[in-house]
Design a protein around this nucleic acid. Sequence first.
DNA 1: TCCCTTTTTTCGGCATACCTAAATTTACGA
DNA 2: TCGTAAATTTAGGTATGCCGAAAAAAGGGA
Lengths: 244, 244
Amino acid sequence: MPPMNRNSPALSSDSASVQDYVKAIYASTEWRDQPVTSSQLAVRLGVANSSVSGMVRKLVDLGLAVHEPYSAIELTAEGHRLALAMVRRHRLLETFLVQELGYAWDEVHDEAELLEHTVSDTFIERLANKLGHPERDPHGDPIPAADGTVDVPEANQLGRLDPGHTGHIIRISDANPDLLRFLSAERISLDSRVEVMGHRPFGGPLVVRIGSAEHLRELDLGDEAAAALWVANDTPHENCLLRT
Amino acid sequence: MPPMNRNSPALSSDSASVQDYVKAIYASTEWRDQPVTSSQLAVRLGVANSSVSGMVRKLVDLGLAVHEPYSAIELTAEGHRLALAMVRRHRLLETFLVQELGYAWDEVHDEAELLEHTVSDTFIERLANKLGHPERDPHGDPIPAADGTVDVPEANQLGRLDPGHTGHIIRISDANPDLLRFLSAERISLDSRVEVMGHRPFGGPLVVRIGSAEHLRELDLGDEAAAALWVANDTPHENCLLRT
DNA sequence: TCCCTTTTTTCGGCATACCTAAATTTACGA
DNA sequence: TCGTAAATTTAGGTATGCCGAAAAAAGGGA
């Protein structure tokens, strides 16, 4: 049974699975450039390693990925295009769910994950139009343009910055809905200002001063929160402050 | 691979196929009460007869349909509930596509057909809310309420009315997009007034006077158009005018 | 260098929904 | 009543994507 997308030049070669695999491969290189291994994909997609082997062979046959047996998996130009098309779909849908249907931050991911395979190109472009062609989604992830161009801002995970660094939050990973709810409750959002203070003794939580442009308050953040918040430099030349 | 609906009590038992079959069975009884046969289902769903036999067995196993071999297929109460839930989804989605995304009449059916299997109950209820809980879709089909109640208006196909009958159009079948475009071009829409004049000689087209409350103009309609337009009586007691 | 652990691939199987072709049952006219 | 044509079901087979188990390759420590 192939109920798949009609009307989708960029998405011509696909079952939902192909799309998911390509997107997962792309995701592991979007914010830091690490080629992905078979087992990492299996974890991310929640399937067995053997399933990944099988599907990766198919991706290679379709010309979407390159893969030497027993080594990392990478996308072809074609695969990269497909991944960006899917990411565009996903992020426009998330934006729609939040702006038009009143979804909360932490609710949109799963819904968009399903819808992105189903809607037509026409739907997506009309939606983009209605939303005014937004450039980032509710989590701060950049939305690729219809022509496949993306601008991924320079940013680092908060937890990887040294004390003294200042910046503002431009991305919040949506991997963990609980964390998103916590951040909501603490009124931490995109564009919040943040200053890194340092760790509490004995490897304790990271202390930051965080809030709106006017009101910064001190807050302790656990490792997961520190990893989920991505910060753009206020002082882009002081990269020396970045812990490597 | 079962990527199906989470979060859907009324829709718990389903692949997309089950939903489609149940909806198709329901559809054949919505406007006139005719139980559907195996081969009719096959035509409607675009599959082979043998596929219908197989899936109907499954529907029976799931408690969604009743079926004596070699006879007509009917829904159980449970199947009827599922069908109404799917119809609600479909019609709300069509309404959304037209009202919010600027789709034309004739474009919405296929898109809704895919989306209805994918969106969550949460999505549907928030959408209903945003749309103001509409009672009919862009084609005039009634939208079942969330609790499963529907009000299917009394109506007859225009082609089945005798000369002299007057009424207004409350439903336009969306089965043929070309026909919808024709009707659009002729500015025939929901709530248009119509008077049946009669057939041109030798079984020619049906002549009607049709238009808005003020301006009626004469128009010839072919059999397909006359079958697609459903008319509510202005004079509900004169059923004698209905050709049987 | 060798071995043992970890990673990855291969192999056989399951489930779904579809198809074609071959039975079977029904229904209607002679 | 019979017999054939039409409708329907069964039987056997395809494709997809998943799994677990077993085989194969890679990699690091002694």
